[in-house]
């Protein structure tokens, strides 16, 4: 086989175009680790995966949320994927732990939240985006639901039924692991 047309390594030095989101992510992570827990109440852990900085894991806790929401007993693991053109495009955040919520798809954990889609602003950052997800738990929108069952309960005004359903799944699916550099440990196993 003939030698492939080898690109000279100098071409990759063309200054700005090769910039990746890594630098900004590292800054965000160190800012997160040094900030007080009160500045991000629902987000209790944020750790990059061992293989790539562009894939992170986070834990959200429902404990700061009001009991009436039904989510106060929950604890969820989330997956964050950073696109190459971050922060001009939003990170993709999905629930790994199953959650019963009108704006989260039960099967996939996909989240329907405007600031993660068309209203994304780089001002938020990953931490801000996760905090927005945490706030979404307390303020569900029932107009364009991904989680149909619980949304229909809420729409019928059956808040007690909805809270019961939500609380049941929070207890059933609760993620009790911890995140460390290198992976999560699931306390249940």
């Amino acid at each position: 086989m003939s030698a492939p047309n080898k690109r000279s390594s100098t071409s990759s030095t063309s200054s700005s175009s090769s910039r990746t989101p890594t630098k900004r992510l590292l800054t965000e992570l160190s800012a997160f680790n040094s900030s007080p827990a009160s500045s991000h109440p629902t987000l209790i852990a944020l750790v990059p995966s061992p293989s790539s900085l562009l894939s992170l894991r986070a834990i959200l806790s429902g404990s700061p949320l009001p009991i009436s929401t039904g989510y106060a007993s929950g604890r969820w693991l989330l997956n964050i994927t950073i696109p190459p053109n971050y922060p001009n495009s939003p990170p993709t955040i999905t629930f790994v732990t199953k959650i019963c919520h009108p704006n989260v798809k039960w099967e996939t954990g996909e989240i329907c939240l405007d600031v993660l889609k068309e209203n994304w602003t780089p001002v938020l950052g990953v931490v801000g985006a996760l905090e927005a997800v945490g706030r979404l738990l307390g303020e569900p929108g029932v107009d364009s639901p991904l989680g149909v069952e619980v949304a229909s309960l809420l729409r019928q005004g059956d808040t007690i039924g909805a809270r019961g359903l939500v609380g049941f799944w929070c207890g059933e699916e609760r993620f009790d692991g911890v995140l460390e550099e290198g992976g999560e440990k699931d306390a249940r196993r």
Partner: peptide
């Protein structure tokens, strides 16, 4: 009220 980590990359593109 923006954090420096938020805009430094963007400003760098302009100044570069």
């Amino acid at each position: 009220g923006f954090e420096e980590w938020l805009f430094e990359d963007m400003v760098t593109e302009t100044t570069d």
